[in-house]
Amino acid sequence: MVLVTGGTGLVGAHLLLHLLQNNTKVRAIYREDSNLKQVEKVFSYYVKEKASELFDAIDWVLADINNIPALETAFKNVDYVYHAAALISFDPKDYYKLKKVNALGTANIVNLCLSNKVKKLCYVSTIGAIGKSVEGHKATEENDWSGQEANVYALTKHRAEMEVWRGSQEGLNVVIINPGVIIGPGFWQQGSGNLFSIANNAKNYYPPGGTGFITVNDVVKMMTTLMHSEIVNQRFIAVAENITYKEILSILAKALGKKAPSKILRVWQLNLARFFDYLRSLMTGGKRKITKKTIKSLMQPEVYDNQKIKDTLGFQFEDMKETINFCCKIFKEENP
């Protein structure tokens, strides 16, 4: 039996589909406010006729990763665990919520893996938990970590990684992947899905800098290949291409039939936007979207090295533009 956490998210939904298509017996946990129908909808993008049949094959268990009794039920007869559940926020006021879900929740998963003698755990982290590079060098898995310039999300994901490494020291076989921005269909109002909405609105401005990008199916392929291998106690950067925000928004705009952005956002404009974003958050209680650390990361972008996964697995990444075109086709159908 394979257990998946975060099964109602972008990575989790695609992972579940992959496992089910390969006749794997799957259990997934979900919270009361989870949108299970969205998982079935993602399935329909790829296997429309069999989406319901595959979805019904999942053994769903109502459990929060901080609810130990419910998790103990979910872990019964489980051999392998994919831990993709996480809270994503870059708002400093969400730090303690992030720590509870990302760090303490991961500690719970690790502890239950150990007590249930799980054979292997695959943890989905983030490139934000990769240490910064010396200027002019690519970031690798060996970069030294410093939390000084990290945002609150990265801080808690790094702490979660420490829990996973702690598990490895106690005898649990683990692998960690550190994905960049994940491109995939169906979650248009959250995470990387916002990029499609931004490009569709045909804004004339684009932010400076860039980052690493990867398709969701490559993330799933990497996870499952590592899980089925004898590789243990290693981490891998999951980035297919390093792309500027101008380039990615232009590619998306073209696929959506929109005008590509042509004007770069200046530092003063970003700082002005940060000020108004702070006021909006103060008045409405909404999450902050632009912080000092956000702006600093835009002005000092990191370039990520994916050579380790290529050398270790002979991994070949799928064509990013083909996936973007596929996603944009679905986006236009669902947002006419």
Rank of each mutant, 00 (worst) to 15 (best):
R288Y: 03
V220D: 06
K321R: 11
D305G: 00
V303I: 14
L265E: 03
V216K: 13
L313P: 13
I290W: 02
G210K: 02
V232L: 09
T284G: 07
M222I: 15
S297I: 03
E230A: 15
A273F: 03
G285H: 04
K321V: 13
K321L: 04
N271L: 02
K293A: 08
L252Y: 14
F317I: 04
K221C: 04
I290Q: 07
I237M: 13
Y278E: 14
S250A: 08
N204L: 14
Q300L: 13
V219S: 09
P208Y: 11
M320R: 02
I198V: 13
H228P: 03
L256S: 00
L226I: 08
K321A: 11
A202V: 01
F276T: 14
N201K: 12
K293G: 03
S262D: 02
F236G: 02
D277R: 09
P208A: 02
G285V: 00
L265W: 11
N306W: 01
F317Y: 15
L270W: 10
L272D: 09
D277S: 05
K292T: 09
L313G: 11
Q300G: 02
Y278S: 08
T244L: 05
T215A: 03
L265F: 13
N233G: 04
Q316R: 10
T291S: 06
A238F: 00
D218W: 05
V220S: 07
T291P: 00
W268A: 12
I251T: 10
K254L: 04
F213N: 00
E302K: 15
R274V: 09
I248F: 09
I251F: 05
K293Y: 07
E318A: 10
F315C: 04
N306Q: 05
L249K: 10
Q269C: 01
V220I: 13
I237T: 13
L265V: 05
F213L: 10
M223E: 13
I251H: 05
Y245P: 03
I248V: 15
R288P: 09
M223C: 06
